[in-house]
Write a protein that binds this DNA or RNA. Structure first.
Lengths: 158, 158
DNA sequence: TATTGTTATACTCTATAACTATA
DNA sequence: TATAGTTATAGAGTATAACAATA
């Protein structure tokens, strides 16, 4: 940490500190938005060299946990429109991390699977994300962390 | 609540329930994303008839709490690019909720103020948001709620 | 030279609608 | 008729760069 800031930076920080947040200080949505911004920026930076971001990582993880899952089920599970999922899966297919197989029981749908390269990338991603997660624990406290996860899980449905 | 679901819906729900979330169940970022989606959808629906959303509401609240604030300070406080802030303020000005005044001390910057209509809209918005917030408390529990707010406040800086 | 507000551009994400092939 | 995947389009959000007025 620098013991001395430039005059410009000091002024900006002093001004930022003097801002009053009013009712926003009592609104969960405001804090959730700031937290998401911070978390995604940190996680995306860690995943960048694998050429994926947290959204594409989540897709890899879900295919890994549910081999042969269809595109609509994947879309529903992650809250992503199926039209957008097509493009995201195109990216992962271009990286040769996944394959789309015609379902044998319903020829309209694709059965999604990881390739060996996809499994390897996911393994590394999970290590990077574990380090990221530890940083979050350190930041909010190991006592509060499980409470926050349990509380936010209330928004899983509906 | 319907006592009976259509066959199609029942199948979809059964499939959705059988999905495994793997490592995602241990990642704060995943829960934060789902929570933000839920919270913003609920809050935006409540604010819709005032012709604003949560972002524009936050701007009104910050101008109210900091009369005469400049556009860059507002941008910095809310984490919105100043180029985007211009268009958001245009919207609020078109609604006649705010005015841009030339600063007397620095003619480059605008001093932002609420109009009477803006104060009135903000007052109603704060009531709508208070009801929304109570719904959040009910959903995550009044014991966990302050812990979650305090924990997520750790992402305010940096 | 640097900053404020502004305009412009490109990219991403979201939301819809429509098309095809299958069921 | 309905569904899975796809394509296309429009609107919103994000990120940059550049410009005029002002400091």
């Amino acid at each position: 940490m620098p013991s001395k800031l430039s005059a410009t930076t000091a002024v900006v920080e002093a001004e930022a500190e003097s801002i009053k947040y009013g009712e926003l200080n009592t609104h969960l949505g405001y804090f959730v938005r700031r937290a998401q911004h911070w978390i995604f920026r940190d996680a995306n930076a860690r995943l960048a060299h694998l050429q994926i971001d947290v959204i594409r990582y989540s897709i890899l993880e879900l295919i890994s946990a549910n081999p042969g899952i269809s595109q609509v089920m994947l879309s529903g599970a992650l809250g992503i429109e199926r039209a957008r999922m097509v493009l995201l899966l195109d990216d992962l297919q271009d990286l040769q991390f996944i394959v789309r197989q015609r379902s044998k029981t319903d020829r309209r749908s694709h059965a999604l699977h990881l390739t060996p390269a996809g499994r390897s990338a996911l393994k590394e991603a999970n290590q990077l994300i574990a380090a990221h997660e530890q940083r979050l624990v350190d930041r909010i406290g190991s006592d509060a962390y499980p409470i926050v996860i349990a509380a936010l899980a209330a928004f899983q449905s509906g």
